[in-house]
């Protein structure tokens, strides 16, 4: 087959086009080179290096020894790691549907064209995403503040007992709220731009068939942007398991509620920089990567299946 095409090509257009094609290849790769260099240097090499490190054990006293997969075995039996993964799974199951549900709702509302000042509303919902994550967390940390935060003061003004939003039992919900607040706008924009790409003819046809706004939303809009929704779900799955900066920053004001292994990423960070156990941290990071891969794959697979089912 290949030879056939090649020979045909050669006979039909001698030289010039192949030179042309080569030039195009060169151009393409030279455009890609800066990315590839950074990608290899900053991602591929450290990845392999971390994989290499995860096979060793370094002790403060006694030096470094090769231990094979011991660190992985240790991690799989490490209650802190498993609890962290469990906590992030809970986070995923509770927070992601709320966040994406609200994002979809806002996207549909804006797309319906019935919202006055839609442009401003869109911007307003998106603004939290433009605020740096660190600032966001510091701000919410202040809002949650035990005695003098606005929320606590509000409750006190009403003569009620203020809930402690930074206590061990409430902190997960408090973080979910921060993340939801921050990322609704981002997801909404993805969905909204997908909605804008739906051909208007479909709506006209639906309207002629007597469909109302809700029916259009349910039967045309949502199915049409399924791939965009899928994208936001996958991003959210990855983001949830990689939760780091929120617990890291809140640790400063509520160390008793967060601890050192709240999320697997925070645990890996503390292992590397507090416990001086870089090798074990690398193993944890790799295992977390596997967990994310598996969960993302399962989510995508179930999404695809549903899509096929819908097509039937």
């Amino acid at each position: 087959m290949t030879t056939l095409t090649l020979s045909r090509r050669r006979s039909a257009v001698p030289r010039r086009r192949s030179a042309d094609a080569r030039r195009k290849h060169i151009a393409a790769y030279s455009f890609l080179t800066p990315f590839l260099i950074v990608f290899v240097a900053m991602l591929v090499v450290p990845l392999f290096y971390a994989g290499y490190l995860s096979l060793f054990r370094a002790q403060i006293v006694g030096g470094t020894t090769f231990v094979g997969l011991d660190n992985y075995v240790r991690a799989l039996a490490d209650p802190r790691f498993l609890e962290g993964v469990g906590r992030m799974s809970l986070f995923l199951v509770v927070q992601v549907p709320i966040m994406l549900g609200l994002a979809l709702f806002f996207a549909l509302a804006l797309d319906s064209g019935r919202v006055r000042g839609g442009k401003y509303a869109r911007l307003a919902i998106f603004v939290p995403y433009a605020v740096p994550g660190v600032v966001t967390t510091l701000m919410w940390g202040y809002l949650y503040g035990r005695n003098f935060g606005p929320i606590a003061q509000f409750f006190e003004a009403l003569g009620l007992h203020a809930p402690d939003l930074l206590a061990p039992g409430t902190i997960l919900g408090s973080i979910m709220n921060i993340v939801t607040w921050q990322y609704i706008g981002y997801n909404m924009v993805i969905m909204y731009s997908a909605l804008r790409a739906i051909p208007q003819e479909l709506y006209e046809a639906a309207r002629i068939d007597g469909a109302g706004q809700f029916r259009i939303a349910w039967s045309i809009k949502i199915p049409s942007i399924r791939s965009a929704i899928m994208l936001t779900i996958i991003f959210s799955v990855i983001g949830s398991f990689q939760l780091f900066s929120e617990p890291k920053l809140l640790y400063e004001i509520a160390p008793n509620a967060i601890g050192t292994s709240f999320s697997p990423n925070l645990y890996a960070y503390n292992l590397a920089f507090t416990n001086q156990d870089v090798n074990y941290a690398a193993a944890i990071a790799f295992l977390l990567g596997f967990v994310i891969m598996i969960v993302s794959y399962v989510v995508q697979l179930s999404g695809n299946r549903r899509e096929k089912g819908g097509a039937r």
């Binding site: 994550g133 959210s236 983001g239 949830s240 990689q242 939760l243 780091f244």
Partner: peptide, 12 residues
């Protein structure tokens, strides 16, 4: 979505 987190992780 969670670009900042990924960046933080990459930085890490």
């Amino acid at each position: 979505m969670h670009l900042t987190r990924r960046t933080a992780m990459l930085a890490g």
